[in-house]
């Protein structure tokens, strides 16, 4: 149909494009951002109305935050290893990252225990929206972390089949993007909660 000549003659431009899957992941990230934006703005609106229980964030959350930050470092290690065709360290790094993710979740559950022992409840007679919001925000973030760990394990699976290397980094790039995002999201939530006590 269209010869090359005709293409230049008629000034045909190819549209810009990015890998569609990667692009779709970014849009998915936008939807998650909107989800948490809704809750954190709800938090501010509700807090402004008074009758707000003030309490300290659980101590344990500082540890879980540190663990999650560390996991971003190991995630990056996996990514760099893939770029450098370092097949063994990809696997180790992914494994460590998943483990740190799991550890984060365990620490979050510990901090829920800490909250309950400080008399901060999710629901029921003794609850106040200020506590319920904390559970919702960290709980829903935790669910996304579960999703992130599944993603890590899928990537690990393909890494163990030697399908992730310098020439095929799509999957690990997406996994890295998503994991860093979850990390950043928690940092945002944590700072938000610290500053809006």
């Amino acid at each position: 149909m269209s010869t090359k000549n005709e293409l230049t003659l008629n000034k045909v431009e190819s549209p810009l494009s990015m890998h569609p899957k990667k692009f779709a992941l970014w849009i998915f990230i936008v939807t998650v951002i909107m989800l948490f934006a809704a809750w954190t703005s709800g938090y501010i609106v509700r807090k402004a109305e008074g009758n707000w229980l003030n309490f300290e964030l659980p101590y344990m959350m500082y540890y879980s935050t540190a663990v999650l930050l560390l996991s971003s470092v190991t995630m990056h290690w996996a990514y760099v290893s893939a770029k450098r065709d370092n097949l063994d360290s990809i696997k180790i790094a992914l494994l460590v990252t998943s483990f740190l993710g799991l550890m984060f979740l365990v620490f979050q559950i510990f901090s829920f225990n800490e909250l309950v022992s400080n008399n901060v409840w999710f629901g029921g007679k003794k609850s106040n929206p200020s506590g319920s919001f904390l559970y919702v925000l960290s709980g829903m973030h935790g669910l996304h972390i579960v999703g992130g760990i599944v993603f890590l394990l899928i990537t690990l699976f393909f890494a163990s089949k030697k399908e992730i290397h310098a020439k095929n980094t799509l999957l690990i790039e997406m996994c890295t993007t998503f994991w860093h995002f979850l990390d950043g999201l928690w940092l945002y939530l944590f700072l938000f909660l610290l500053l809006n006590r």
């Binding site: 936008v30 939807t31 998650v32 909107m34 989800l35 934006a37 809704a38 809750w39 709800g42 509700r46 999710f122 629901g123 029921g124 007679k125 609850s127 106040n128 929206p129 319920s132 919001f133 919702v136 829903m140």
Partner: peptide, 23 residues
Amino acid sequence: LSFPVLFAAALLLIFDRSFGTSF
């Protein structure tokens, strides 16, 4: 941009209905 916000609203309503929260 907007459907996730409805999801957020609905989830809090679900918690209020079934888990005794008071959003």
